[in-house]
Structures are given as C-alpha cells and as structure tokens.
Amino acid sequence: MPAEVDTGLATLSDQLLLVTVLLYVFAMIGYALHLGFGRRSVQQAAVVREHALVGAGTSVPEAAPVVEPAPADDDTAGPRWPARAGFIALVLTWLGWAANAGCLVTRGLAVGRWPWANMYEFVVAICLATVTAYLVMRHKFPQLRFLGAFVAVAAALSLGFAVRYLHVQAGPVQPSLNSYWVAIHVSAAIIATGLFTVGGVTGIIYLFRKDGRPSRLPTRADLDRITNRVVVLAFPLWTFAVIAGALWADKAWGRYWGWDPKEIWAFITWIAYAAYLHARATGGWRGRAAMVVQLVAFGCLLFNLVGVNMFLGGLHSYADIPGSP
C-alpha cells in the first residue's frame, strides 16, 4: 500500500503544471499572431489545388500535378514574421506537451499509483490527451495548424481552472480506486475525451466559418471531414470506457449498471455521439445539422465531466473536489 508521498516529486509536478500553462499561453499567442497577421492566401491556393485535383480525377494522363500538403509556410508575400510566430508556437506546444506529460509522470511517481484518480489529475490528463490528439492530427491534416490557437486556449483555460479550483495535494486515494481498472477504464475515458475535445473545437469553428471569405482556417469541408474522423476514432474508445466501467462497477459496487448519475450521462453522451455518426452515415442530417448534434454530444461529455462531478454526486463522487462535502 503506497502510503508514502514523495513530496519533492509532488512539488515538482505542481511546478511543471504552471510551466505547462505558461507554455500553452505563449503558444496560443504565437498561433494567434500567425492566424491574424499572416497573409490570407490560403483560400486561393486551396482553390487552385482543387482544380488540379478535378483534372487528376478525370484522368488527364501526364500533367496531373502531384497533390501534397500545403507547405508549412504559404506566406509568399507579406511579412514573414507571422509564419515564424506560428512555427515558434508549434515548438512551444511541444514543450508544453512535454511539461504536461512530465507533470503527470512526476505526480504518478510521487504517489505510486496511476495519476488520474481525482478531478484535478483527470483534467490535467485530459488536457494532455487533447494536445496529443491535436499534434498527431495536425501531422495528418496540415490544414489543422491554424486551429492551434483554439486548442492551446482550451488547454490553458482548463489547466488554469484545474489549478485554481480543483487542485488537491498529491496523496493516496480511496481503496476502491487502488485497482488496475483505473488504468483501463479511466485511461480509455481520458483518451476518448481528448479526441472528442478536438472534435469539439473543429465543430465550433465549423459553425463560425464562412466559406468563400479569405481565411487561414480550414475549409468547412475539411472541418467536417476532420471532425468525423476524430469522432469515429473516439467513439469506440468511449464505448470501451463505458463497458470497462460497467465491468468495474460489477466488481466494486455489486451491479454492472445502476443508473448512477455518471452512468446516465455516459449513456446520454454515447447516444448523442451515436446519433451524430448515424445521422452522417445514413443521411438526412448532413453538414451543419450533424455538426450541431456533435456539439450537443460534446456538451453532454463536458457536463458529465464537470456538472456530474460537481453538482450531482452519486457513487462516482469521489472525484475529490476541494470544498465539496
């Protein structure tokens, strides 16, 4: 029973968290500068590429241009510093990511258990998952780089909230949480939540994005596609997290499903995302309508995370939020 807390490591973890927040904030500023002051040439470039593609599709033999991701720097004219700011922002995001991961690792080592067993640790881990998802997705979809500002602001705000309102000293947890199920159930929930958060960001931008206007943001079609991709990835993971939760509940509470508030909202979230996927796959609600469903689902996810832990309680209420009874 790891009762001893390594206070040195615990303090290091707390300091790393502050470093993480700062790095994310600076990254956000960098992204914002790139987004706001870079030359707005992307839209046009995209259109040109689109024409080339149509040509390729109808098979003009030789001349079909090779399609490749837009180069990291479109700013053929205009000042070069915004692009540099964007690059620095990316570096800062990676550094923030490393600090974020370090914060969790040191916390875990300090307490000798998985470092996501209370609300504070949970939020920190979700931020890491979100930023990881963003960085990986950005690799695959270069258009996403201009969403960095939004992801960084979401991560910085969440971590700020966690430090200010949720922080608890590193320490042991209830016996029910000393279980390998934390690694299975909670990790799956965290990764799924991280991916869903990227979907939430792209979804919100989708609603505000107006095609045809010069903008560095990805086109609505891109946003739609990327959102779908993230949800398709995250949904099975979420399903798995809920089922693992049920298996754990069967071991811990003597029933696999008992309509505890957290279970109810996990179920509602699941249904809402399923509805989004169905709507998109079987027609009817395409585009904006499907995106609204996706955002409703994301709202349910957030409510389950924040609302249920803070206001509704239930068996899951060992979230250990400071100030709550």
Binding site: L53, A56, G57, S59, P61, A64
Partner: peptide, 8 residues
C-alpha cells in the same frame, strides 16, 4: 497516376 483525390 493513382489519382489521390485528397481534397475532394
């Protein structure tokens, strides 16, 4: 040219 229609 396996036409990769990435942007379509």
């Amino acid at each position: 040219e396996p036409a990769g229609r990435k942007g379509a």
